[in-house]
Amino acid sequence: MRFRVISEQFMIKSFLALLQAFVLILIMTTIPLLGQNAKKNNISLGLGRQLLYTRDMAASPMMYSGYQDLFQINYCYSGSTNRHILDVSAGRSLLGASTKNTMTLDYINLSYSYYHFVTSLIDEKLSIFAGLGLNHISSEKQFNIAEGFMNIGSFDEATNLNLSILSELKIASKDKITLGIHSPLMAYILRPDYSLFPRDNISKYEDAPIRYYFGEGKFASVSNFSGLNLWLSYDKTLFQSIALRVNYNLMYYKIKKPTQTGLVANSLNLNFVYLF
């Protein structure tokens, strides 16, 4: 007997839904801002590699790790006293454990943050912003422990409200280094029951993931959902409307109940940035 494995089509559907949400938010935030000032918006497309570590106690006490190709879209509005940043990244990877078993991980991360200017230092070269962000992480795993069909599929979804801090250091007229940190304040999580989801619930999840997520998820405080998202980036403007961005990102989260799981992602991306 086995569970229906969360399908590839489902992952594509989820990704497209998130992408639609991203585009919608992008349009909603961009339209009022357009025309205010040139070159305050930028959108970037990034490709990179991600080193992942994950452990899901619903399936195994072992840590699985491996590399993943990562696709990233980022939008940023830079006002004189604020920043709006939207970010979507996704990837699929085959991870391995020291036991030589493997698992397939599908991963989507969507975030929006608003930052307000707090202060500037070092002759106004360093600007500090603080604000709030919303972040949604979807992680789905299919373990390949047995040769047959009795493998575990597991997943978790978490939307968290986070405290966000951003600092930008201008190092030349058009180059900058950015450091950002998100730390969750609370979250809304969906996690398999203690053992696994009953089959009919998996079907409901696959058929209508958003309705199922809001019907079955639970609020979690930092005692049950903890995490950190830190990124460092270097932007180099090449032409008037084109820049290159090298971005390092460390993200981790842990969900303790009903069964503990966690994921650590280190990613290095090269982004092509269009300024408008």
Binding site: P61, L232, Y252, V264
Partner: peptide, 21 residues
């Protein structure tokens, strides 16, 4: 410094989830 910080964070991130049993 940016590069070294990234490298350092990357190298110690394995320990965040704790060691294998």
């Amino acid at each position: 410094a940016l590069f070294l910080t990234s490298l350092f964070l990357c190298s110690c991130s394995e320990n965040i989830l704790g060691p294998d049993p």
